[in-house]
Simulated assay, not measured.
Amino acid sequence: MDKLDNEKKLLGDMIDLYCRKNHNSKDDLCPDCKELKEYAFYRLSKCPFGNDKKSCVNCKIKCYDNKHKDRIKEVMKFSGWRIFFRHPILTIKHF
């Protein structure tokens, strides 16, 4: 599994966790979170740095539009520390 695949997995799990806890979704994501996940995966797949990418927060290129940037920040703020307990190795690899 390459770096972008790891990042997609971690980000997808963070969005899943956020949606389950905040939108009471059980099996499927709500439409807003599903759209956010698809957008985030699309943007990751178009990253010009590929597997050499840094963490998005340290990147000079901002791939997200303002609407999605604010939503992904909210997801990361909520899920950031919680995801560590679900996927500690994946989280450590991310950093």
Score class of each variant (00 low, 15 high):
M1R: 06
M1S: 06
K3A: 07
K3W: 07
L4C: 03
L4D: 05
D5C: 02
D5W: 07
N6W: 04
N6K: 04
E7K: 01
K8P: 12
K9W: 13
K9C: 12
L10T: 12
G12L: 06
D13A: 10
M14S: 04
I15V: 04
L17M: 04
L17G: 02
Y18S: 05
Y18Q: 10
Y18A: 09
C19S: 08
R20E: 11
R20A: 10
R20Y: 15
K21G: 10
H23K: 15
N24V: 02
N24Q: 03
N24D: 05
K26R: 06
D28Q: 02
D28K: 02
D28G: 01
D28E: 03
L29A: 06
P31H: 01
D32R: 08
C33S: 05
K34M: 14
K34N: 13
K34E: 14
E35N: 11
K37T: 05
K37P: 05
K37L: 10
K37R: 09
E38M: 10
E38I: 13
E38Y: 10
Y39D: 03
Y39W: 03
F41L: 06
F41K: 07
F41Y: 10
K46C: 12
C47P: 09
P48Y: 01
G50W: 03
G50Q: 09
G50I: 12
N51E: 14
N51F: 04
D52P: 06
D52Q: 11
K53M: 15
C56S: 07
C56F: 05
V57T: 14
V57A: 15
N58M: 14
N58S: 14
C59I: 11
I61F: 08
C63P: 08
Y64A: 12
Y64V: 10
N66P: 00
N66F: 03
K67H: 13
K67V: 09
H68M: 15
H68A: 11
K69R: 09
D70Y: 06
D70W: 00
D70E: 14
R71N: 05
I72C: 02
I72V: 06
E74I: 11
V75H: 08
M76F: 03
M76C: 04
F78H: 05
S79I: 07
S79F: 02
G80W: 07
W81C: 00
R82Y: 12
I83N: 06
F84G: 03
R86I: 11
R86V: 07
R86M: 05
I89Q: 08
L90G: 03
L90M: 00
L90A: 06
T91N: 04
I92S: 01
I92M: 00
I92P: 01
I92Q: 02
K93H: 09
F95W: 11
F95T: 13
F95M: 12
